[in-house]
Design a binder for these strands. Structure first.
Length: 262
DNA sequence: CCTATAGCCTGACGGC
DNA sequence: TGCCGTCAGGCTATAG
């Protein structure tokens, strides 16, 4: 689930739930999701603190602690958050639970353990060290900057869009949606896109991501005409009623409409 | 620089 | 119903 729109919703969710409450304890159910830190050490760093802010870069969430450290959450393919009070409501597949002094809990839910939890001194340093590209919807992402990111890329558009070191936040599902709405075939090369196509792609990227956020990143509530609700081989294209095809691009399954995307 | 492949994990789903 | 293979919204390491 967690691409940029999903993580933005989780950021807002965190912001409206966990801020300014003292952390009293911690439970780690899957040690392997912790990177470069032991459970006991993480607990030491968190207990007694509150969260002061929630930031996001691409698919990464950063929660600022009153100590000045930051908790970094990355959700892998299956991560989610739940804030709840009653222990009976503890979600299945919780891998990390943070307890607050108001007797509420925050659970990091992750059936597959492909996400990561880190403690950071500075998110900006983290972004730099990971060589992440700029966030896809940051205010500095104007057309000129967007164009510059892909200027000398010789990879296929879908691959380049999913490359977090080029641009951060777009994954398999939303790359398909953006290319579908822009009418561009996933295997086209960036180099050969016309200025007009590139412009269309830029505008569509902003539009698709923002719309997804506006609809709480819940595909079932998205307007008709989106690929995401028909993203299966053999489904009907919502625009032309043709057949949705599945292809492999860079080892991932891409879905597109051969008629609408050239 | 780019692509393809495998591996990390484990639940959900479809077919028999 | 039960078993089994396949797939899945991420990322990394490795090889060509």
């Amino acid at each position: 689930m967690p691409e940029l729109p999903d993580v933005e919703i989780l950021r807002r969710y965190s912001e409206s739930t966990v801020l300014y409450q003292e952390i009293t304890s911690l439970e780690v159910m899957a040690e392997r999701i912790l990177e470069h830190i032991q459970p006991a050490q993480l607990e030491d760093r968190l207990v007694g603190n509150s969260f002061l802010d929630a930031d996001r870069h691409g698919k990464h969430l950063f929660l600022e602690l009153s100590s000045g450290y930051w908790l970094n959450l990355h959700f892998g393919m299956t991560g989610d958050l739940k804030y709840y009070k009653d222990t009976a409501d503890e979600p299945e597949y919780s891998k990390l639970i943070i307890y607050f002094d108001n007797s509420y809990h925050l659970a990091l839910i992750m059936p597959r353990k492909l996400g990561k939890v880190r403690l950071l001194e500075d998110p900006e340093n983290f972004v730099t060290s990971k060589r992440l590209g700029p966030d896809a919807i940051s205010s500095s992402m104007d057309y000129e900057r967007f164009k510059g990111l892909f200027m000398d890329s010789r990879s296929m558009v879908k691959s380049a869009f999913m490359d977090q070191q080029k641009i951060a936040g777009i994954g398999n599902v939303y790359s398909d949606e953006i290319l579908y709405q822009a009418g561009i075939h996933p295997r086209r090369q960036f180099k050969e896109l016309s200025d007009q196509e590139l412009h269309k792609l830029y505008n569509t990227m902003q539009d698709v991501l923002q719309t997804a956020i506006d609809f709480q990143a819940k595909p079932e509530t998205f307007p008709e005409g989106t690929l995401i609700k028909h993203r299966r081989e053999g489904e009907n294209c919502p625009k032309c009623s043709g057949r949705i095809e599945r292809i492999e691009v860079s080892g991932r399954a891409g879905y597109y409409c051969p008629t609408c995307q050239a």
